[in-house]
């Protein structure tokens, strides 16, 4: 934090600070508080009852399952893609990076739509799947695929700027000393990127568990079977089961807060090992 000895007078400063805080309070903090308030509106008993209902528990399990598949897959991909992009020069690199970033700028609904077009009854592979009695849409595989699509870029986006910053000299040194590819990655690169990798995984996980739009399109909304937690929130809300909806929502909000706290902790204590754009 730089000391700004010249500049705005004290009164103006405080006016600006309070305005900024008010904006954040209204737009960020209040919604969070509202979730908790609505969830506990009818007391702790009703809250826990809503959480442990069978459908809610299935939704929680499905969410965890989807994240358990999507996050490691995208982590492996993210590391491989970052390595390929930062340690070598090749034509078309910018295009590749743009493509990797693509799911980030596409509407979640479209992310789900593309899989419907591929696997739906009227889609390319629809008839083939039906003939082999394979269900992708309106079943868990479709949900996993849509989630993987949407959370695809997260790990790579964290790693690429950092690995660009760190350069290739350490890896070159390791190779000159006789190390092979995997050894170089494991002993030299991984320790240098571990905190950025953790941040990427945390964000990937938060999005994977919280994804709504894309999953909504491919899931079929079958209670107890193809409902993730966010979808379950929607169903309960539309049935005017406010306590139920907000109870599940509160779990997701809690997850978001834990993610934020962990990410902030990493940035505070290991900020020097994250990309410059991340440090604040």
């Amino acid at each position: 934090m730089k000391a700004h000895t010249i500049g705005e007078p004290g009164l103006l400063r405080w006016a600006l600070i309070l305005t900024a805080l008010a904006f954040l309070a209204v737009f960020l903090v209040l919604p969070l508080a509202a979730v908790l308030a609505e969830a506990l509106a009818k007391g702790w008993d009703r809250y826990f009852h809503a959480l442990f209902k069978h459908d809610s528990v299935s939704a929680i399990w499905l969410t965890l399952l989807v994240a358990a598949i999507a996050v490691p897959a995208n982590m492996v991909f993210g590391v491989a893609a970052s390595w390929a992009v930062t340690k070598y020069d090749f034509p078309g690199k910018s295009l590749l990076v743009t493509l990797i970033d693509l799911p980030f700028s596409v509407s979640p609904v479209i992310s789900g739509l593309v899989y419907v077009l591929l696997f739906g009854l009227q889609g390319w592979l629809g008839p083939w799947l039906q003939a082999h009695d394979l269900k992708i849409l309106f079943a868990v595989p479709g949900i996993v695929l849509a989630t993987v699509f949407v959370t695809f870029p997260f790990v790579a986006r964290e790693l690429i700027p950092l690995m660009e910053e760190q350069g290739r000299a350490e890896e070159e040194a390791a190779v000159v000393l006789g190390a092979g590819g995997f050894r170089t990655f494991w002993s030299v690169t991984l320790p240098n990127i571990k905190w950025a990798l953790l941040t990427g995984v945390l964000l990937c996980n938060a999005r994977a568990m919280g994804e709504f739009g894309a999953v909504s399109v491919v899931s079929g909304h079958i209670r107890g079977l193809t409902n993730t937690m966010p979808l379950h929130v929607e169903i309960l809300y539309n049935e005017y089961d406010l306590v139920g909806a907000f109870a599940v929502a509160s779990l997701l909000a809690f997850l978001a807060l834990v993610t934020l706290a962990a990410k902030t902790a990493v940035e505070w204590w290991h900020g020097d090992e994250l990309a410059a754009t991340r440090r604040h």
């Binding site: 997701l252 909000a253 807060l257």
Partner: peptide
């Protein structure tokens, strides 16, 4: 960034 969109929506 971290909060699921559905939660934001109902909140």
């Amino acid at each position: 960034f971290a909060l699921p969109t559905a939660v934001a929506g109902v909140a």
